[in-house]
Amino acid sequence: MRALLVVNPAATTTSARRRDVLIHALASEVKLEAVTTEYRGHARDLGRQAAESDDIDLVVALGGDGTVNEVVNGLLHAGPDPEHLPGLAVVPGGSTNVFARALGLPNDPVEATGALLDALRDGTERIVGLGLTSGPPGSEDEAVPARWFTFNAGLGFDAGVVGRVEQQRERGKKSTHALYVRQVVRQFLGEPNRRNGTITLERPGADPVEDLVVAIVSNTSPWTYLGNRPMYTSPKASFDTGIDVLGLSRLSTAAVARYGTQLLTSSPERGPHGKHAVSLHDLDQFTLHSKVPLPLQMDGDHLGLRTSVTFTGVRRALRVIV
């Protein structure tokens, strides 16, 4: 088996020495080519090259969720074909690693490498569903390129938090959970539409859901982690179903306190709920429209402002070694 290892040198929890050890371990099982990313989007380009190659069987992403997202978008640039495209393997190296942990991998990169080596020896794999975004036909966002996400996406409040975190990282701050918490507070204090949402959710065969402040789309569960604590916005979300969405129509101080507490105490059985919460499960497609441009994020990557986004759940999109 020939494998391409895509290495993010800026991965939060992986030192150069540890990367060398992991590369050596992987090279003992497969014919390995390791490439270090040099610019934003490089992992996507490498994934695309692997998809177009005739002799690469596996792409291993060593990095955080952003690296994984880029590799996946490269692999699937021409659409899903899990039986013929290279498989994906993940060695977590970021601060949160939601996708890897949702697959059941250890959060430690050394232990995850051991699990990957076992999977390669045993030939174990699964085919997972993913989420896909695009601009709805006839909208001003129609020309925005379609993009895959592996575990979550969001329009509105949570995407604004992601944007604030990225700004802080560009200023040299480390990506920590404390940094995220601070930016949540700042986003809340600066949120102009927290009492009167601008988002409408439309889906075939159902009445629209109006006046949402935020819409959080999940392709799996949990939604994210705070340290080692999983947080569930859509507990039923799964790689084996369509996509789920949690919409909140109020972010007053009292609502934030209530939903924040519910998130911290959420479980695989119950997520946020209440008068101003709407939960939808196993959707094939829906569109979010906003009266004003709002930030969009996918897999923790801020993608700018949008007024309309169509979300599609694509079952059996990607083959994963796990």
Score class of each variant (00 low, 15 high):
L117E: 00
Q49A: 15
R40T: 13
S134G: 10
G123T: 09
L75F: 02
V322M: 07
A16H: 12
A257F: 11
A102P: 02
L105D: 04
V98H: 04
A25I: 03
E191H: 15
R315D: 03
E170N: 14
G64A: 12
T265M: 09
G114L: 08
R182S: 11
S234I: 03
D65H: 07
E210P: 01
A237T: 00
R147V: 05
R319G: 05
D57V: 04
D45T: 14
A3R: 02
A16Q: 12
G64C: 11
R203C: 07
L76K: 05
L85N: 06
H84Q: 10
G104V: 12
R203Y: 05
T96P: 04
D45G: 07
L303Y: 03
A51Y: 01
N73L: 10
V245N: 02
G47Y: 00
H273G: 05
S252G: 15
D122M: 12
A159P: 01
H289F: 14
E191L: 14
Q285N: 10
G138P: 04
K291P: 00
A257P: 04
W223L: 10
D108V: 05
G64K: 03
R164F: 08
S290W: 05
T13P: 02
L264Q: 08
R194D: 01
A43G: 02
A146D: 05
R186K: 14
A119S: 15
L103K: 02
T261W: 14
V209C: 08
R126Y: 01
P272E: 01
S238Q: 04
A255Q: 12
V320Q: 00
G123C: 06
Q49R: 15
R319M: 07
E29N: 10
T67F: 08
